[in-house]
Write a protein that binds this DNA or RNA. Structure first.
Lengths: 181, 181
DNA sequence: CCGCCCATGTAATAAGTTACATGATTCC
DNA sequence: GGAATCATGTAACTTATTACATGGGCGG
């Protein structure tokens, strides 16, 4: 039920197609939500039925026609109601890698180190990508317009998350080394 | 399909009941997975059918009887196979609060600050809880036995995650203050 | 006496993923 | 010629959540 608020939130910044919206989840400058294209298209159709969004078909040459979705007044009202709700559910995280880490006692130190090194490389790449993206998008601006405040705050969160992950990996590798032989 | 590996991982540290296993998810010294009791009980039954776990009924007085589950050789083999798989899926995070943050442009600065302050308080409490738990559980030990390595590494991750969250909240509040008036 | 902890389960519903389906364009 | 991008959708399936169900013990 919350996927719709993710979509409505993105639509407050302007009209987007389903493809655009899914791309935002996929290309990850979003660290706090994820989805698949099929879910996005289905939710958009439901929201159109409930009049939370409207769309306009854009005829394109060279690429397929697309539907540009716009949030309605009703949709905006619904979003804000949800944002102001008392209860905020705790984050749900499913991190397969940390799940493997939590069972490291079942494998050898050497195997554990190999796994950690793989993830360290991955997280370093993610950190570099996010920092690069933030720089390109906001430049030296450390004070974006209020319209951008949401994505600015969360992109900084993403950067900090990636940095924390890298530092934790390095710390964990050092600790694991001490169990070797 | 991954919930089973979470359970198998926990069972490598010794026998547990379904209730125990769910409590570990619920009382949060786990920052990388979550589940509900109904899913835990159902998955344990499935794994018993596939002979990945066995159980023994413990008759108790004063409290209801319980089933103590133990991982089988087959279960351990299956877990290790999974741990060593090449592909590691990226983490899936669903954080309702960050979702609200990402739509801050739809509400006023004052309302945004109120929301952030609420979360800052919550995250501070979580950080305090985790640090306290880690201290009680591991004491001054910064080098636990290899059997504990999995939960030690991930509890440290949890602490760092909570710390990062608190620091980000404080940074975000400061930035938001500058948009006031 | 009310609510929480212990302890386990099933049924119904919702949410999310993967596979199936199509098709032009562009880059290597 | 093959893969990736743009663009949308449906069908089948798996996973996850919520509600329903039971019941004794214990503390305030």
């Amino acid at each position: 039920m919350a996927i719709r608020y993710a979509l409505l939130g993105l639509l407050t910044k302007g009209p987007h197609s389903g493809y655009d919206l899914h791309s935002i989840f996929k290309t990850q400058h979003i660290y706090f939500w994820n989805s698949t294209h099929s879910q996005v298209y289905q939710e958009l159709n439901k929201m159109r039925d409930e009049e939370l969004v409207t769309y306009e078909t854009i005829v394109q040459e060279g690429s397929p026609n697309k539907k540009l979705y716009t949030i309605t007044h009703k949709g905006e009202k619904r979003l804000i109601e949800w944002m102001m709700e008392e209860a905020i559910k705790p984050a749900k995280i499913k991190d397969e890698f940390l799940l493997r880490v939590s069972a490291f006692q079942a494998i050898s130190v050497e195997e554990a180190i190999t796994l950690l090194e793989r993830i360290l490389a991955r997280e370093k790449a993610i950190l570099a990508g996010t920092s690069q993206w933030q720089l390109e998008y906001y430049g030296e601006h450390t004070h974006p317009s209020y319209l951008e405040i949401g994505s600015y705050l969360t992109s900084e969160f993403g950067k900090r998350y990636a940095k924390m992950y890298v530092e934790w990996c390095e710390w964990a590798l050092e600790l694991l080394e001490s169990y070797r032989v």
